[in-house]
Design a binder for these strands. Sequence first.
DNA 1: TGTACATCAGTGAACGCGCGTTCACTGATGTAC
DNA 2: TGTACATCAGTGAACGCGCGTTCACTGATGTAC
Lengths: 204, 204
Amino acid sequence: VAQAPYHHGNLRSALLEAARALALEQPIDSIMLREVARRAGVSHAAPYHHFADKRALLKALALEAFKELLHLSQAQNQPDPKARLHHIGLVYVQFALAHPTEFGFMFRKSLCEPKGVYDELTEVANRCFEVLLKTVAAINASKGIEVQDLQAQGLVCWSAIHGLASLLVEAPVLPEPPTPAQIEGLVYLLDRTLESGLFASNQR
Amino acid sequence: VAQAPYHHGNLRSALLEAARALALEQPIDSIMLREVARRAGVSHAAPYHHFADKRALLKALALEAFKELLHLSQAQNQPDPKARLHHIGLVYVQFALAHPTEFGFMFRKSLCEPKGVYDELTEVANRCFEVLLKTVAAINASKGIEVQDLQAQGLVCWSAIHGLASLLVEAPVLPEPPTPAQIEGLVYLLDRTLESGLFASNQR
DNA sequence: TGTACATCAGTGAACGCGCGTTCACTGATGTAC
DNA sequence: TGTACATCAGTGAACGCGCGTTCACTGATGTAC
């Protein structure tokens, strides 16, 4: 296998991996299909045996990203729902910082068009949200709270996490990329905000 | 002036306006300079008398967007700092929904490169953040709270607002675009979360 | 008021570029008998 | 174990396309005298 056989064997994965590597270096829209093929060591027409077109390859990339995010969110087994929520927030922010281009791309609405038909990307995204919703519901239960609109509560919770991740990735305001310790500190502050508000007096 | 004079008169503004209109129809990276010129009723070389290149035009578009956001944030005169924060959150989300393409684009880090030199976009973005910071600080003061890291507190606050705006614009999870009433409801829920946490028992 | 002239803000042709995609092809693989 | 053959997964040439940018140009404007 050392001398590059005619058949690649696992070109589909290799193309996705090449696209992932390119995404670390440049924005998603300047990724070129021919360059992905080049990186995978294959002619520029070869990808068409594995993906209908460029868009399909990029969508597959987004799908993989969502699957990884889902996997990370679930990779825990803590009994305390608050600890679970902290975990979700932390891995979410860490994922965004580790894969900034994919993070910005995987939420593009145009990826899921046309609407109405079954779409695996939408489904996995929904499952990510459901993991969060269940955790939020568990915290409600542990506090004996009845919430009228769990979706809205979950959306606000997701917003706080998503916003922190987004700003850390892209905010023009931040002079330096944050250190892992700063990230954890911000996620803890976020936890406390969700727990008791942004203006609780037990600020540390 | 009815018969299209040779000199346009205010082509720079007209080009930005054309770009803004195009941004309502398509993602930022598929906006083409030649089409912007076409929309402005001018030859495709004319923009080069007003912008160094395509990137400069798009950056000017982002700058205008930030200026409008700053203006909206400041367009109020409420004595209660909590009311001011609510206003900021509301106009932020409304702006994002009204200008989704620019909203996604104006935060791109690459817009502010090369770093180090003075950059008007960075400055206006910072001023937006400062409006928020001052409001948060005023709420702290009204509560007699001393905060160790105002920047972090402000960043978390901004995250919550920014995240809600981002998700409402782009989330693949939401089946329908939200109504104005839903938006206000979510911003109120956000307010209450910042005030007393996501799990306060006074859920309505 | 008129004229010369510099400057500004357009035009339209042209350039090079590299893309996404298609096509006929060919080498490799696997299965039936 | 061999052989025929269908199928799969590559190749490389070619296509059309429209872009961003440059250039020499020209029409319009404004100022000096």
